[in-house]
């Protein structure tokens, strides 16, 4: 029971990470209509910049700032240099150009930091754990990650529903032409949204850096899960990204934690282990296939 609760929290923590990545991606997707496979690169940039600065300075908070700044800047540069030319292209060109960006980012990171993973230490405040329920001490840092993720969710909700920028974003997600017709500085809006998306991805990277190993290719693994979240949630819907992110994060974590054990009761150990890991890795993709079969545009599709 305690184990279950702990895994649920782990799932929640993974879920908010997915949400941080998916929120930016779904906005970029929904508003600019561009598929950005390289969104995971901003996650990696944030993690590397954060980890490196925090190792150099010994300050987690310095690293956090550096990670946010680096990912936002890289995001804006990518938007100005590459993405801007892709908005009018078809999905195929977008997939390929951003696939090329992945190669470029990964290899550049290898050139700068090498192939060895970076390890960061936690700041003093977060190094301990809190006993949430009797018998379950849970790492403070993971709770902090969950809190940050939820805070961003609330912040985005307010931004989108209560501000003028948010109004444009909502209008843009459902009707691009209309926003153009409103005479808004579209270029500026696009750059800002792209930068915000990159910043959120970088935040996710910094938050993940003490938990997962910071290494080249870390963005590639999580970006596929992020795409699944975006598509299940419905392209352009931040609400969908939140719901799908949390649900998928939890399901994925639970499957990985418990499925191999369950299978071991039915078949020999090593094979059960391999099969369990395999099936749990398939889990989110299976969910996406099922959701799309019932709702071809995702759960909370913004466009009609």
């Amino acid at each position: 029971m305690i184990l279950l609760f702990e895994q649920l929290l782990n799932g929640l923590q993974y879920g908010v990470t997915l949400f941080l990545l998916a929120a930016g991606l779904t906005l970029i997707f929904g508003i600019m209509g561009v598929i950005n496979l390289a969104h995971g690169a901003f996650y990696m940039v944030g993690a590397f910049a954060g980890a490196w600065v925090s190792i150099q300075t010994g300050s987690f908070w310095g690293g956090l700032l550096a990670g946010l700044a680096a990912s936002a800047i890289v995001g804006i540069v990518v938007e100005l240099g590459v993405m801007r030319r892709l908005y009018a292209r078809d999905h195929l060109d977008q997939v390929l150009a951003t696939f090329a960006l992945i190669l470029i980012f990964n290899q550049s990171t290898v050139l700068i930091f090498g192939r060895q993973p970076l390890f960061t230490s936690l700041p003093e405040v977060f190094s301990g754990s809190i006993e949430i329920i009797p018998g379950l001490p849970y790492p403070t840092f993971r709770l902090f990650v969950i809190a940050v993720g939820l805070a961003v969710a609330v912040g985005l909700y307010l931004l989108i529903n209560k501000t003028r920028i948010g109004m444009l974003v909502r209008a843009g997600a459902s009707n691009r032409q209309m926003v153009r017709a409103l005479g808004v500085n579209i270029q500026g809006l696009y750059t800002a949204i792209f930068g915000l998306g990159a910043l959120l991805a970088g935040l996710a990277g910094v938050m993940a850096s003490p938990i997962v190993s910071v290494q080249v290719g870390m963005g590639d693994e999580i970006i596929l899960a992020t795409f699944v979240v975006v598509v299940i949630g419905g392209v352009g819907s931040v609400k969908g990204a939140f719901v799908a992110g949390i649900v998928l994060g939890m399901c994925d974590t639970m499957l990985r934690a418990f499925l191999p054990g369950l299978l071991q009761q039915a078949m020999p150990g090593p094979e059960a282990q391999a099969l369990g890991v395999g099936i749990s890795s398939m889990g989110i993709y299976l969910m996406m296939a099922l959701v799309l079969l019932v709702r071809p545009r995702g759960l909370f599709a913004a466009q009609g």
Partner: peptide, 28 residues
């Protein structure tokens, strides 16, 4: 093929991933 556009791109990717993990898990 019941979907289209972005969803088609992603669902084909999803099926490929399922096959990928299926073969990874076949120890035999």
């Amino acid at each position: 093929l019941r979907t289209g556009g972005v969803q088609f791109i992603m669902i084909t990717l999803a099926f490929a991933q399922m096959f990928f993990f299926l073969f990874i898990s076949l120890k035999t």
